[in-house]
Amino acid sequence: MNKHKLIRNRGASILVLLIVLSLCLFSCETVQPVADVATQIGVMSGKIDEQEAGNIKKTVDSLSKTFEDITPEQEYYLGRSVAANILSQYKPYDNQQLTHYLNLIGKACSLVSTRPETFGGYHVLALDSDEINAFAAPGGLIFLTKGLLRCCKTEDEIAAVIAHEIAHVQFKHGLQAIRQERVTHFLTAILEEALQDQLRDNKELTDLFEGSIKDITTTLITNGYSQSQEFRADQGAMVILGKLGYSQGALISVLQSMRQRFTPDKHDFNKTHPKPESRIAEISKSYSVSGLYTINSARQKRFLEQAKNNL
């Protein structure tokens, strides 16, 4: 190795060290631009060549890969296949009037969420099942069983359960269900593909896709999200209800109805969610609302016509 190259390599090493050091000083969100600026300066000043700059970038990338780096488009394709899996276990409830009504409520709720726009948008479908259950696939495909909809006595209560599912999407809880090593492997693979302009082996990506779908579907249908994620989704739902003008007490009320209707040992919300009383207690820490609220007559009229009559 000649002297010039040696000095350059030392320079590159020090730069890597300094960038990694900056990780300790700034948040992950800031590290990415820092790395970009640092590598560009390195190239411009001639201290490192472009290949070394690429290696630095990869080093930093490997430190900051999380579910947050999955693009909305990738999330969309994961969500579609998660939805197809849900629909292989639950029959859709094909009722045009109810579906349209649910989507009006869903669209309104999504527009006041902190993530109103996803790659493919939010869409709601009822499932022909007596189970009390709901699912949100990544990207915004939301499913509510007839059993859960029968627990709702008003439009506000339907909005509460949809808002809870939208909150799971806005906080990307589905993507967080993917095992971290799979996320790292996937993001490394696509970055390498992008950097090298070479197409990856599709089998590798298909296997990663399959594993990710399995992780998410198992969490949604079998294991459930963590208690803290459920509590956070309830908080998100309360904010959505409040912003839109629905009664926040509706979430408390529907949780109370669910508690009364749960069947022990049945596979439903009871298996995948914290107990309704724990959720009510958690909500009550931040909001002084009860399950009693004023019913809006115009909303109740359309609820009876478009939901209740179809369940």
Partner: peptide, 28 residues
């Protein structure tokens, strides 16, 4: 990464899955 092509390959390996309703849902 995960795109239409990968979804297509996954769907080929899981022919029990029906994407027709997913497509229908997206049009609503």
């Amino acid at each position: 990464g995960f795109n239409q092509k990968i979804e297509g390959e996954y769907a080929l390996d899981h022919q029990n899955l029906d994407y027709a309703w997913v497509d229908k849902m997206e049009r609503i």
